[in-house]
Every structure is written in structure tokens, then in C-alpha cells.
Design a protein around this nucleic acid. Structure first.
Length: 267
DNA sequence: AATATATACAACCGCGGATCT
DNA sequence: TAGATCCGCGGTTGTATATAT
């Protein structure tokens, strides 16, 4: 139905302002209905783009920084088991996204495979690492099978449902947020220390979001204003917004002005 | 110091499956 | 049941940054 979004959709890197806006609305409505979020947020992005941004960058559960040796090994083994099923692999690595793993594989592993190729062509000694270059070489993987894998239930952490997100996000406010990396290319520091440098904190965004909860910005529609308070859970949001006619409601009531955001984000 | 090349990673695209109407 | 729409996945591209020359 719809509006023709083709001519007004934005592409390219996300701005902090857009991030902030997206986080706010995801927190508001959960992270399932991306087209809806794209519409009500006023972001000139497709739902698809919003989802991608959330999943790969803004999600509070994201672990940033270099892959640990354990994770590297896991990726290696899982790839030998599953092939390029990145989302499947990602499910075994909490905090890592399929995109991240995919990128990681393309760079690191390809490089390693090349190096391996070189050395092996010289020494011609077969080794276990040939698992890395093929999706079907090592079918049985004792390492994987015996590894104390942290099963993230059946779905990956970014395969959301919204409900559990509340706790994650709340925790994120205080802890892991240092991993948030700036997209805009102005500041990029050394990535030597995982989760410390090279990544700018999401603190401020989350603080701002919390401030929004504290009455500073509220939906204009009064009778529902209390629904936006932080006391309510995602559960509530997701269920209450499953009512009939919600799209219209959302559109008309939750239009935060860019002034509200920019005044907080831009100094 | 300037330029070329490699690397890292965010973001887009197309497709297929799931869900909705 | 069929068509429309949405969502998620994997592949690919674009670009900023790091490193080599």
C-alpha cells in the first residue's frame, strides 16, 4: 500500500541522528515490524535498511572488536560444518552478526587460506586447516561438537522478538555500550583493545533515550502517553501494537521532531 | 611526504520463504 | 487459495582507514 518511497528513501551511511531515532523507535515498538518503524519514525529509510542497521550496528547485544581466538576457531569449524550459512554460524557466536562473520571470513580466512596455500605448496604437508577453505571438507568436527557452545536458543540474538530485548537494553545502558562504533568516518581510533578504543560509546544515545522516558519527549497523544513510560515492557508494546489500526495510530501520534533529537545529539 | 595498494566493514541488492489479506 | 507484502539471508559493492612503497 502505499506510499511510493522510492523517491524519498535515503541511502548510504547512517547519521547519529538517524541512529538515535531508530533506537528510540525500536525501543518503542520492538524490532519486528521494520516497515512500520520505518514509516512512523520518519526516517527516510526502508524497513529493510532499518533492520539491517539495527541488527548489524545498533543492537545492544552486539559484541565489537576483534574476534577472540576462540571465536576464530569456532568460525573456522562452523564454516567447515555449515558452509556459508552465516546466520547459522552467527547463532553460535552470541554478539556477532552474520554480516560480521561473513566479512571476517572474507578477509581473515581468505588471507589465511592463501597463506596456507603458499606454505603447503612448498611443504606439501596436509594439515587440519584445509577445513577453512571449503565448506565440506571436514564433516566431523570434534572441536565444534565438544565445544562448550553458548547456544543462543534457537534464534540468534539479533533475531529478535522484542520482548527479551528490554533486559538486554537495560543492561546495555551500563555495560557493554563501549563497543558502539561510530559510523561516520570522522573518528576512527586504534582497535587494538577490544571494546575500549576505536569505538565510541552508545552511552549518550541510551542516556538520551532514557531521558526521553523521563517525560521530556512524549507522544503527543495524551491518553497513551503513559504507555511510553519506561515502566512498560517490550512485551507490552509488542502486544499492544498488535491491535487493529495500529499503523494509523502510530503514524499520527509518534512523530518526534528532528529538533528533539538534534538538540540532544548535536552540540 | 605523497601515492598506491590492501584491509576492514558498513550498507545495498536480489531472492526466497513466511505471513497477511 | 492466490496475490501482496514483509522479513531474513547470502552475495556483493563502496569507501574509509591502514600499511607499504
Amino acid at each position: 500500500m502505499g506510499q511510493d518511497i522510492t523517491e524519498m528513501t535515503r541511502k548510504g551511511p547512517w547519521t547519529e541522528h538517524e541512529d538515535f531515532q531508530l533506537v528510540f523507535y525500536v525501543r518503542m515498538f520492538g524490532d519486528r515490524r521494520w516497515d512500520f518503524i520505518a514509516n512512523v519514525s520518519g526516517l527516510k529509510r526502508t524497513g529493510k535498511s532499518c533492520r539491517l542497521r539495527w541488527v548489524n550496528y545498533l543492537h545492544p547485544g552486539l559484541k565489537r572488536g576483534k574476534m577472540t581466538p576462540h571465536e576464530e576457531r569456532l568460525v573456522l569449524e562452523l564454516h567447515s560444518k555449515f558452509g556459508n550459512r552465516w546466520s547459522k554460524i552467527a547463532r553460535k557466536l552470541p554478539g556477532r552478526t552474520d554480516n560480521e562473520i561473513k566479512n571476517y571470513w572474507r578477509t581473515h580466512m581468505r588471507k589465511k587460506a592463501q597463506e596456507k596455500k603458499k606454505t603447503s605448496s612448498r611443504s606439501q604437508s596436509p594439515s587440519l586447516s584445509n577445513c577453512s577453505s571449503s565448506s565440506s571438507v571436514c564433516t566431523s568436527n570434534p572441536v565444534v561438537d565438544s565445544m562448550p557452545m553458548i547456544e543462543t536458543k534457537e534464534r540468534s540474538f539479533y533475531d529478535t522478538g522484542g520482548v527479551e530485548m528490554l533486559t538486554i537494553m537495560k543492561g546495555k545502558n551500563n555495560n557493554n555500550n563501549s563497543n558502539f562504533k561510530k559510523t561516520t568516518t570522522t573518528t576512527r581510533v586504534s582497535e587494538s583493545t577490544e571494546g575500549q578504543e576505536g569505538y565510541y560509546s552508545m552511552d549518550e544515545i541510551w542516556k538520551d533515550i532514557d531521558l526521553l522516558d523521563d517525560d521530556s519527549i512524549k507522544p503527543v497523544f495524551d491518553p497513551y502517553s503513559e504507555l511510553t513510560a519506561s515502566s512498560l515492557t517490550w512485551d507490552y508494546y509488542s502486544t499492544s501494537w498488535a491491535m487493529d489500526g495500529q499503523e494509523e495510530f502510530g503514524k499520527s501520534t509518534f512523530s518526534l521532531t528532528s529538533k528533539d533529537f538534534s538538540s540532544r545529539l548535536i552540540d
